[in-house]
């Protein structure tokens, strides 16, 4: 899978690149409008992460160019502007998703995975981790040959875990993934704790392995190591 990261901020660009490369994606980067425009015209990418404010031009223009000649490249807008009109314009132009800075890298990763899933396999595929199989479109779960009943949030949590397997997920990133960043919940961590405990119990009860490791005080890791 080939990803083009278009971001003018060097630190952020490298951060995203490092993170996604660990997920064994092939990553290329562009730091300005012209560079990005050329790369998009010459090569084919599965996903393009496009920052809206770029030196040399607007990221929205890149989306227009891209849509003109390549329809199967997935587009995720990265924007510092938490503004509705940029979001709407971007999505109107054909972007698939929108993420606002500052975001958590696991969140971006989950979005990329979800996008690839939707693009490449027309939504028919499942997410599999050993004995656990999730179907995001139908919202069904299989643990071995059993079908545990998961609540909506538990399902989202499990999908987020599997999308970011073997990676540390901080409680903050889990909270934002589950409830969005508009939420100002004082009890976030308590809720995450309960959700994870319930999820764990349901998987173990259905003879699944407990892959959720507690990283004390920081967050959790979904791993078979």
């Amino acid at each position: 899978m080939k990803i083009l990261i278009i971001e003018d901020e060097p630190d952020l660009r490298v951060g995203i690149k490092d993170f996604l490369e660990k997920e064994s994606y092939l990553c290329e980067t562009a730091s300005n409008f012209n560079d990005a425009d050329q790369k998009l015209a010459v090569y084919h990418y599965d996903v393009a992460l496009i920052d809206i404010t770029l030196p040399g031009g607007s990221g929205l223009k890149l989306i227009e160019h891209l849509k003109r000649h390549s329809t199967d490249t997935g587009i995720i807008i990265i924007s510092a502007r938490n503004s509705l009109d940029v979001k709407l314009t971007g999505l109107d132009l054909g972007a698939d998703d929108y993420i606002t800075k500052p975001f958590h890298l696991p969140e971006l990763n989950a979005r990329v995975k979800a996008l690839l899933r939707r693009r490449k396999f027309e939504g028919a595929t499942s997410v599999i981790f050993h004995e656990i199989e999730l179907n995001p479109d139908q919202g069904t779960v299989k643990v071995g040959d059993k079908n545990p009943e998961l609540t909506k949030k538990e399902f989202e949590l499990l999908l987020f875990f599997i999308s970011n397997k073997n990676r540390l997920l901080t409680r903050e990133s889990i909270a934002e993934h589950l409830w969005g960043d508009n939420i100002d919940m004082a009890d976030n961590f308590y809720f995450i704790y309960t959700h994870i405990n319930n999820l764990r119990k349901k998987i173990v009860k259905n003879r699944g392995n407990d892959y959720i490791k507690n990283i004390y005080g920081i967050g959790y890791k979904f791993t078979d190591e």
Partner: peptide, 28 residues
């Protein structure tokens, strides 16, 4: 927004770093 994004994304990768476990508390 941008510096904050950089700080938090860098911290996230530092937190994952196995060699820095003794500093995990401060990093967190």
């Amino acid at each position: 927004q941008t510096p904050l994004a950089i700080i938090s994304s860098r911290l996230e990768s530092l937190l994952e770093n196995q060699g820095l476990e003794e500093h995990a508390g401060s990093l967190n």
